[in-house]
Write a protein that binds this DNA or RNA. Structure first.
Lengths: 207, 207
DNA sequence: ACCTAAGTATACCGTCAAGTATACTTTGGC
DNA sequence: GCCAAAGTATACTTGACGGTATACTTAGGT
């Protein structure tokens, strides 16, 4: 019995996440979660007061995991076009990843019961990325603040939302990704992203 | 007892939709649906084999209701800029309407169990609107087909997805609409739509 | 060595909801 | 007017699941 405290807590979170993603909130049973976490229901309830609290903990946990994927890595280089394309490509890829899609569906499914969960999740993902993009435009390209924000929103609208929305509704093939890997994979076509980035930069610089 | 056949069937569908939207698939009880439809569970099961079939019937029913809102009315006038702005504004408004949002969340919540439901729903809404936009551009403005499609996708990306996605996650205030009314209401700001339409038209004509 | 906190194993309770059964009433076509 | 189809009223069966209870084991600090 080496697995105590945080270790076990993490195993529970991970197992619970799998079960919630696979079955949805209501059909996910605490019995199954305990089984997958290789522990007992009694212990589950020692760590999490009830199913609702466990669910919220999972949203938070996932938020953290996703945020870690969405940094602006230094090794994207100094060329803004190139760096922006890589960043956007990687973000798009992360968001159409089937695990992300299922997580979004889960939070959306329960948005009525847990409005804060959905809103926080959204803000943590989309808000953060939008801010990072705007900051990059402002700092590296000396674009004025309000223009930078508008440009970031616009860029995301063109690149992300169409494919993301389609993926949400299951209208795109499922995307499986590795947990590591910092470069966009073959699941995203960089060509339209390059075009959108180029156009955004041109417009932003012109003002 | 004047309400037989289709009449009753419609009452059931409407009541079931309310209950599903309010509680989600699993927490919606057939007892409550029967009560709201002012009938009995036995009759419910006479019209719909089981809960799943009822759910799918509701998706289809709603699809029809939404599609009816998304026509390109003749009274939008002959000026393409103006007509496109009205059309896009009305589509945006319809999609951030809280009933639409809840319906989308519902289909997304069950996308795992009913993949066809979600995909069909998506196609019926977004696919149809995209087609109508592209057709309009092609027919009224003589834009070549592939360009028209690209322009339509782009336009929707800029106008719709950002607000729609935010609304999905509950990051925008709820929008309540009247069932009738063919003009966009005060819930959508036409200014950014005008800009996007103008830019789209300029780009489409240039090619 | 021992005591306490954490975890295990397993059974149990109460509730709720899907779907069925049974006996009855209303309706409309003939 | 009658009869089959549609609908009503209500009770029942069955199973699942959230959460608790009880009795036990293990680990680790002192």
């Amino acid at each position: 019995m080496q697995r105590r405290g945080d270790d076990l807590r993490d195993r529970i979170l991970s197992a619970a996440k799998d079960v919630f993603l696979a079955h949805g909130f209501d059909r996910a049973s605490m019995d199954l979660i305990a089984e997958k976490a290789d522990t007992t229901k009694r212990t589950l309830y020692a760590h999490f007061e009830n199913k609702e609290k466990l669910f919220l903990a999972i949203i938070d946990y996932t938020r953290g995991l996703l945020a870690a994927r969405l940094k602006f890595p230094a090794d994207y280089g100094d060329d803004p076009d190139h760096a922006l394309v890589l960043f956007c490509g990687r973000f798009l890829e992360t968001m159409i990843w089937n695990r992300s899609i299922r997580m979004c569906r889960l939070t959306l499914a329960e948005a009525g019961r847990f409005p804060d969960g959905a809103a926080l999740f959204h803000e943590a993902i989309f808000g953060t990325v939008q801010d990072r993009l705007a900051t990059y435009l402002r700092e590296r390209l000396a674009v004025p603040k309000s223009t930078a924000t508008r440009a970031a929103v616009d860029l995301l609208g063109r690149i992300l939302y169409p494919r993301f929305t389609r993926a949400l509704f299951g209208a795109e093939p499922e995307v499986e990704l590795r947990d590591d890997a910092a470069q966009p994979s073959e699941h995203v076509d960089l060509k339209p992203i390059r075009a959108a980035v180029a156009e955004t930069l041109r417009a932003a610089r012109a003002r």
